[in-house]
Amino acid sequence: MEQFMAPLWLSLKLAVFTTLILALVGVVSGYVLHMFSFRGKSLIRAIIALPLVLPPTVLGYYLLVAMQPDSFAGGVFEKLFGVRMVFSFYGILLGSIVFSLPFMVSPILSGLDALPKSLREASFTLGKTRLQTFFKVLVPNIKSSLFAAFIMTFAHTIGEFGVVLMIGGNIPGQTRVASIAIFHEMEAMNYDVANQYALVLLVFSLVIIFLVQWLQKRIALW
């Protein structure tokens, strides 16, 4: 049982860390991209959206190349923290963060863009700075977008496979998350175990969909 649960806990851990870190990244980039105008803004938006269309294997390949112990980034990270990025939890965490970035940032940005411009302008004329305006007026008015972003990021991380397999492999306790465990048990011809993992993920996905629907109704009523 403990052995069966390990990949599920690992998936959960990965999803929680990814969502927490991306929540911070999402809010900060929402602030910068929505409240300021500067050169190269549409390029940054395009780069953030890139993982949506990029095949996971392409992303996985570049991440693998970048994080190799012999590469610059991988070497620096290993020297600084004494941990190796590839085939470790840190590696798949970074991979998930990059891969799920648009799932967090896009809903936040479109939520912000959908707000009437006059709201933030009214706040400015009432003597509030950009930062105050962002957190006191804009963020409270995109609650449903924020919830959607958190949930979609979380669910997307749980379901991620290609990037994890490429940069993390299949290492128990480090990178063998639930989706990889299905693959692993298939390879080991333990079809009943693979079946159980698949069932858990199926139920999880259904619950997420219901949760999103329920939340959207609830938030609409606020």
């Binding site: 009437p116 006059s118 709201l119 302008e121 009214a122 706040s123 400015f124 004329t125 009432l126 003597g127 509030k128 700075t129 006191k136 007026v137 409270p140 008015n141």
Partner: peptide, 28 residues
């Protein structure tokens, strides 16, 4: 910047903050 000009602005669409009640809107 506008927030340093000590002005008041009434917008055509009023631009009241939807998440705040009347009192909190004025207190803002």
């Amino acid at each position: 910047a506008p927030h340093l000009r000590h002005i008041g602005y009434v917008f055509q669409d009023y631009a009241l903050f939807p998440h705040l009640n009347v009192k909190a809107n004025i207190q803002y």
